[in-house]
Design a protein around this nucleic acid. Structure first.
Length: 338
DNA sequence: GAGGGTCAAGTCCGT
DNA sequence: ACGGACTTGACCCTC
């Protein structure tokens, strides 16, 4: 717990856009592909990885500076998993063990972490769909732990993870995979102390709903995804629902974060913007559940916004929308004008 | 410079 | 069993 936990935050994910919706190059990540690296000489490939590393780490510093200049309630963002490309890819992972690379990351990411704490910017990571800690395959579990520990390495270099969700930091994953909740408990035993301090588990749309993730309430902090819950159960939660309170309690005193998104506006053209979307009604009208999962550009529905904001006294809100910080800032403006 | 194809990885669903 | 969605643009290559 830190002194800033009284602040109610609304944050965004992974990319920073200017007011025109354009990606700002010096505050966003560059990338490469394994296929491209494999086509180059070793020297050329390593130089590219070094250049991308420098750019991405410095871009992180600049975007944290930017977010840290915003109103206190907007100082929250998820960092992209692509900061250090091919970190866990077998052919190229050796690059990230080079002494000069590690020295750079130790030095520069420490500055990023210090800046985030000084400016009171709440940060997080969200490993992607290929990080499946509870896969039925042992090999996939092992590689997923490696992928998770990659995110832990970045967090550790930034100075997070020595204590339970310090400064609200989280590394969030889903509970998809056949081993279910027990698989997480097993995986935790194979992970670093910092990983166990930072991991959160989120309910998903198709497989693990909140009832499933609650099996882990005494093991990890739980992330409530409101849209996933709607897709999974066709229902809306009351903030006083016992299950919501158990999710809050799983954070053991740290202010929780929830995830908030809504179905694409171009899928629901003509839907009243002040009425809660009804999943069963939409389904009966021919909307496919798969399609309803996809995220909107902006938070276009004031009824769902009111629903999500009703959780703000208890949770920070991570907005997942294609228009990124433009969507989270607009939601905050809506909130302050209520 | 524009346009089109490519991209490390897993899981689930529909057919 | 297999293809596609999910997401998701950014990058790379060709023209």
């Amino acid at each position: 717990m830190t002194a800033n936990t009284a602040i109610k935050r609304i944050g965004f994910c992974c990319k920073y856009l200017d007011s025109n919706g354009e990606t700002v190059p010096d505050k966003n990540y560059r990338g490469t592909t394994v296929a491209w690296l494999n086509r180059q000489s070793k020297d050329v490939a390593e130089q590219r990885l070094w250049d991308i590393m420098e750019h991405n780490v410095h871009a992180t510093f600049r975007v944290v500076t930017e977010v840290g200049s915003m109103e206190p309630s907007l100082r929250m963002m998820r960092l992209g998993s692509d900061m250090l490309p091919v970190y866990t890819e077998p052919t190229w992972s050796y690059f990230w063990r080079r002494a000069d690379v590690i020295a750079f990351l130790e030095r520069e990411l420490a500055k990023v972490g210090e800046l985030a704490r000084k400016l009171d910017v709440r940060l997080s990571f969200h490993p992607g769909q290929y990080c499946v800690l509870v896969s039925a395959s042992d090999d996939i579990v092992t590689r997923s732990i490696d992928e998770f520990e990659y995110h832990v390495d970045m967090a550790r270099w930034m100075g997070y993870g020595t204590t339970w969700h310090d400064h609200g930091f989280k590394i969030n994953v889903h509970l998809s995979g056949r081993r279910g909740a027990d698989g997480i408990i097993h995986a935790l035993g194979r992970m670093s102390t910092e990983a166990r301090n930072l991991i959160t588990i989120e309910n998903d749309e198709m497989t693990a709903g909140i009832d499933n993730i609650l099996a882990l309430e005494n093991h990890v902090a739980l992330v409530l995804d409101l849209h996933h819950h709607w897709v999974h159960s066709a229902s809306y939660l009351d903030t006083q629902d016992d299950r919501v309170q158990r999710i809050v309690n799983s954070w053991r005193g740290t202010r929780p974060t929830l995830h908030y998104s809504v179905s694409r506006e171009d899928l629901l053209i003509g839907h009243p913007t002040d009425t809660l979307p009804n999943r069963e009604l939409l389904k009966s009208q021919g909307h496919k559940i798969q399609k309803l999962r996809a995220h909107s550009d902006m938070m276009w529905n004031t009824a769902v916004n009111d629903y999500a904001l009703s959780f703000l006294p208890q949770f920070d809100i991570q907005v997942e929308a294609k228009h990124k910080n433009l969507a989270s800032t607009a939601l905050y403006r809506y909130y302050t004008n209520l």
